[in-house]
Simulated scan of single mutants.
Amino acid sequence: MAGNQGQPQTVGGTAANALIKDTETASFGPDVIAESQIQPVLVDFWAPSCEPCKQLTPILEKVVKSAKGKVKLVKMNIDEHPQIPDRLGVRSIPAVIAFQKAQPIDGFMGALPESQIRGFIERLVGPIEASEDFLPQAEELLAGGDPTGAAEIFAGILKDDPSEFKALGGLIRSFVAAGEIESARRILSSVPAAGERDLAIVAAKAAVELAEQAAQVGDLAALMKAIEADPDNHEARFELAIALNAQGERDAAADQLLEIIRRDRTWNDDGARKQLLQFFDAWNLMDPATLTARRKLSSLLFS
């Protein structure tokens, strides 16, 4: 699942090569014009130096694969093959043009979000299935304490679509929940560049880092005793927050960090607030513990 610095690789296998492929000037006729007589064909015009292209193409491939053959994707490097894009008036990339019955019928420019790309393709071919249908099942298993079952579903989604970052993030978190931190770290290191800013991957990375931190903290009872002896022992309170979070006590973990902020905002270079933000990344922005702690944090910082 490792990425590269240029255009994402065409998916291997005979069926996938027919569904998603690269083309050039000489093969544009059979790959696009002739093929569009059978079903719509999307042409993704890109260039190696185009950063938005690197963001768009994995999402395009994902949605095309979920369409199960109703639409095909052909990618053309305009640096190497400028004649066709010039003829079509492509002046800015990324640009996607849909062909049907040998004619360009629709298109868009720029790195659109997945929902808009899915809507664009559905206007051409009708409703298509979404791998997200299985994601809630996996998340429910993970939340219910069955990381093995969750991992099986996440892995199944990734088998069909390796670019599904929500499933990839879920798989990493499943390994964390199962205590297999090294496996989680190994999968995280293989995340392609296009997915590093995806919220699911951000959450997975935070979960791995928090698990690593939790492995280094002291005994829970000893930490609580140290704080009772000295309420300004911020290091012990900080470690207690990490330990509580590892046990699923999110509200209590947040409250310990909030107490550090209340007592000394500048401690450890604003370390308590930064740690709390990492909790938010790992928990999900709409988690009740996140919402509650964020309100309390705002009250401390702005009251």
Rank of each mutant, 00 (worst) to 15 (best):
D264Y: 11
S49M: 13
L210V: 02
K72I: 00
V96S: 00
A177P: 03
A214Q: 01
N233H: 02
A215L: 07
L276W: 04
G13P: 01
I59G: 08
F120I: 00
P136A: 01
I20S: 04
D161S: 10
K21D: 03
K54L: 10
A130H: 14
R185T: 11
Q275H: 15
L297D: 08
T14G: 15
F120N: 00
K159C: 10
G170I: 01
K166S: 10
A203S: 15
L141G: 12
Q39W: 12
R265W: 11
D31S: 15
I260A: 11
G149R: 02
L258G: 00
I187R: 06
A98Y: 01
F280V: 02
V176I: 09
Q7I: 11
E180Q: 07
T290A: 05
K159D: 15
E164P: 09
I20K: 02
M76A: 09
V43F: 03
A243Y: 06
A193R: 07
G89M: 08
L297M: 14
G170N: 00
A236V: 01
G126V: 05
I97F: 05
R263W: 06
A252K: 06
D269M: 12
P94C: 03
L88E: 03
G195E: 03
A203F: 05
K296H: 15
T266Q: 13
A67F: 06
A215S: 14
K72P: 00
P113Y: 08
V176F: 06
I172S: 02
D161V: 05
A221V: 09
D146W: 03
K75G: 04
A18L: 10
A167T: 01
E24Q: 09
D133T: 12
P48I: 01
R262L: 05
K274G: 13
S298K: 13
G248M: 07
K274E: 15
D287H: 11
S163R: 15
F175D: 04
L276F: 04
A155V: 11
S163G: 12
A67Q: 04
P288F: 04
I97M: 12
A95N: 09
F238K: 14
A102R: 08
V208D: 05
Q55L: 08
S303N: 12
I84C: 00
L42V: 02
V64S: 07
Q278G: 12
S36G: 02
A18T: 06
D133L: 13
L88M: 10
D133P: 07
D255W: 06
S174A: 07
Q9A: 09
E140S: 14
D22S: 12
T23S: 15
L258I: 04
P104H: 09
S49R: 15
R262M: 04
Q247D: 08
N4I: 13
F45M: 05
D133V: 14
V125R: 05
G156H: 03
H234L: 08
G126A: 03
D255P: 01
F120K: 04
R91S: 08
L240K: 06
A178V: 09
R87P: 05
A167Y: 03
L60E: 08
